[in-house]
Design a binder for these strands. Structure first.
Length: 645
RNA sequence: GCCAAAGUAGCUCAGCUGGUAGAGCAGCUGAUUUGUAAUCAGCUGGUCGUAGGUUCGAUUCCUAUCUUUGGCUCCA
């Protein structure tokens, strides 16, 4: 019999007969290890413990651990099976679709004969616990194509899964099933595996939520019920995770936005933000932060109308390809639309006067307010709204200039994000969507140009097929919120279509007219969304330049209010955003209010400060900084204002 | 738009199986004149998301609708 060589995590090499199982190897190392083992990993492939091993390579025995992604993966996937079995038991006639382990747990998409409601989860959990207690083994069955397909005939989703599995390149023509217990007696599911040896190995799980999900993610297809749950190696891991969610909720920008009185959204205009004075300070501070960067990079800022006649949207293609996303309005009998994007308006400015090749690249920026009719049910605080301000710009350039302009922009995005401490950014490359304008030749050219640019920018990306804008492919810069959900912020898009459609031209060196390429780009994306991300990232403890109130003066009693007002006046004149707390409260109470409002500097003034013409400074998170003169304090804030994190 | 859940005072929430609503904080008034995360007392405040229906009677049951939340889809 052939021997295979297995390299263990400690570097030692074991030579065993081909066909030996992971469990046998675990036993040969230690009985205890064999008892704990969940699965094995051979060359990056996780396998059941009792699968015969046929190849040499790196080898590890997977044991329960909240730190081991492989362990969590098998546990969660097996837990999803237990979930599916429980649902099938409780709701006969349930059809199963798909039940993978995901980043933070697992889900199962299924179709029950009657709709499930949230309260059913408790019942399902109870049944799952019984199945786990029965400690039934997961048994793998490998069947040939005919036998396998015969087993899933009644279930349209599983049949579809089976057919697709057989079509996959790495298919060996067999289909695998996992029975939880005895064949033909207990529940089974078409599944590639791997699984843990028996259900009793699941020690800590919880069902979390119920959601609708489309079969294959296709809106036109069946709507399935998705049950989300999570599973950990032990109770402690589960509790830590649930605690994490609880903690994350405290960072939620919607909660902090309310507590700090930054904004609200109301029923009259769903998805549109009412920025309160304090939020407005932040919006303006962020705009100014970006504006200063753009000024240095040769952008010209413009302002364009928000309401534009339908005819422009017809020419641009929006009326055809973006229609359901647009707010429409009538001016008497004239049909207008509220702009969902700034690009057509920027082309209108470009088209004023004759442009020469010497004008290119022409970088036109606008903090343009856009409105998009997003589907109900997609709104989310500041992150997903219907009215938002983009830090938008359009770069009109030649084909030759695309790569360097895109590359420079990528650098700008990285710089800005790094200043806020976002260093690990996900970049997606989205290619031509089904609904698009322009010929395939132009799309080939645009996608190629964007790819060349990513090489110049030395940018790693994830391919996101079919998700580009209707006029061109795009790069998306993705940030995460407190719960780890992805939000697209920055973007750059290569567009060979709109300039042509809207008649943009420049005179080239050859004295002929040419159509410029247009790069649509936004560094933070939308001011609203980016502030939402920042609120969660900083948990309300904003850097001094961004924070709405930088200092509050706290007179110890009414006797010192006059002096406090004088301090306040001095600070206002020095450009510090300052408030005064004249309330008839004790100092401890006033300080507590400031801490809750996350105010960076508190200036306590009492008898001592009045006589010495000083203020006592208390800094957020750092405590008492001692007393100093007002001018010393102003110097201190000036230094702190430049610090981003 | 789809599935599920929710909507009670400015905020956070209570209100069991139908008998016209409560707490804490905030706010107001008064007392206190306060030294680094909550001084005390009193008072105000809600046609219980909206519109219908069932009922002698609806915050509570039913229907519709709007909004919000968690997902799906879509997107900055």
């Amino acid at each position: 019999m052939n021997q295979i060589e297995l390299t263990l995590p400690d570097g030692s090499v074991r030579s065993v007969a081909s066909g030996t199982t992971g469990l046998e190897i675990a036993k040969s190392i230690a009985e205890g290890l064999a008892r704990k083992a969940l699965a094995i990993k051979l060359n990056d492939k996780i396998l059941d413990l009792n699968r015969p091993l046929k190849e040499s390579g790196t080898f590890k025995i997977i044991t329960p651990s909240n730190e081991d992604a492989d362990a969590l993966f098998v546990l969660r996937h097996s837990c999803a099976h237990v979930l599916a079995e429980a649902v099938c038991d409780l709701y006969p006639g349930t059809q199963l679709a798909y039940g993978p382990a995901i980043d933070k747990g697992f889900y199962y998409d299924l179709m029950t004969p009657t709709p499930l409601v949230f309260d059913d989860l408790a019942k399902i959990e109870k049944r799952m616990k019984e199945i786990i207690k029965e400690d039934r083994p997961f048994i793998r069955l490998e069947l040939n194509k005919e036998e396998g397909l015969a087993r899933v005939q009644k279930d349209k989703y599983k049949l579809d899964n089976a057919e697709r599995a057989l079509q996959r390149e790495d298919s060996d023509g067999t289909l695998s099933f996992y029975v939880t217990g005895k064949q033909n007696e207990n529940w089974e599911d078409l599944c590639a595996g791997p699984h843990i040896p028996n259900t009793g190995k699941i020690k800590a799980f919880k069902l979390l939520s119920l959601a609708g999900a489309y079969w294959h993610g296709d809106q036109a297809s069946d709507q399935l019920t998705r049950i989300y749950g999570t599973c950990f190696a032990d109770k402690e891991g589960l509790e830590t995770y649930l605690k994490f969610i609880e903690e994350a909720e405290k960072r939620d920008h919607r909660k902090i936005g309310k507590e700090l009185d930054l904004y609200h959204i109301e029923d009259h205009s769903p998805g549109m933000v009412f920025w309160h004075p304090k939020g407005t300070i932040m919006v303006n501070a962020l705009k100014q932060f970006i504006r200063e960067k753009l000024n240095r990079l040769g952008y010209d800022e413009v302002i364009t109308p928000e309401i534009v006649d339908k005819s422009l949207w017809i020419k641009s293609g929006h009326a055809d390809k973006y229609n359901e996303n647009m707010f429409k309005t009538m001016a008497n009998d004239r049909e207008m639309a509220i702009k969902p994007m700034n690009c057509p308006c920027h082309i209108e400015i470009f088209n004023q006067g004759l442009k020469s090749w010497r004008d290119l690249p022409l970088r036109m920026a606008e903090f343009g307010k856009c409105h998009r009719y997003e589907p109900a049910g997609t709104m989310h605080g500041l992150m997903r709204v219907r009215g938002f301000v983009q830090d938008d710009a359009h770069i009109f350039c030649t084909e030759e200039q695309i790569a360097s302009e895109v590359s420079n922009f990528c650098k700008l995005v990285k710089d800005i994000y790094a200043e806020f401490g976002f260093n690990d950014i996900l970049v997606k490359f989205s290619t031509r969507p089904e609904k698009r304008v322009g010929s395939d030749d132009l799309w080939d050219k645009a996608e190629q140009a964007l790819e060349d640019a990513t090489k110049l920018a030395n940018l790693d990306y994830q391919l996101n097929p079919g998700e580009g804008a209707f006029y061109g492919p795009k790069l998306e810069f993705v940030l995460k919120d407190c719960l780890g959900r992805d939000w697209q912020c920055g973007t750059i898009q290569v567009d060979f279509n709109l300039p042509q459609r809207l008649g943009a031209e420049y005179v080239g060196k050859d004295n002929q007219k040419h159509i410029p390429v247009m790069l649509h780009r936004a560094a933070v994306g939308s001011i609203e969304r980016f502030l939402g991300i920042l609120i969660e990232e900083f948990m309300g403890d904003f850097p001094l330049w961004l924070t709405p109130v930088q200092a509050r003066v706290l007179p110890i009693s009414e006797k010192f209010v006059d002096y406090a007002k004088q301090v306040e006046r001095d600070l206002i004149n020095a450009g510090v955003r300052v408030e005064i707390d004249e309330s008839n409260e004790k100092l401890g109470y006033k300080i507590r209010q400031c801490e809750l409002q996350k105010i960076p500097f508190l200036l306590v003034v009492g008898e001592k400060e009045v006589s010495e013409k000083k203020v006592s400074v208390r800094q957020r998170k750092e405590g008492d900084k001692g007393s100093m003169s007002v001018s010393e304090f102003i110097e201190m804030t000036k230094k702190a204002r430049d610090v981003i994190r």
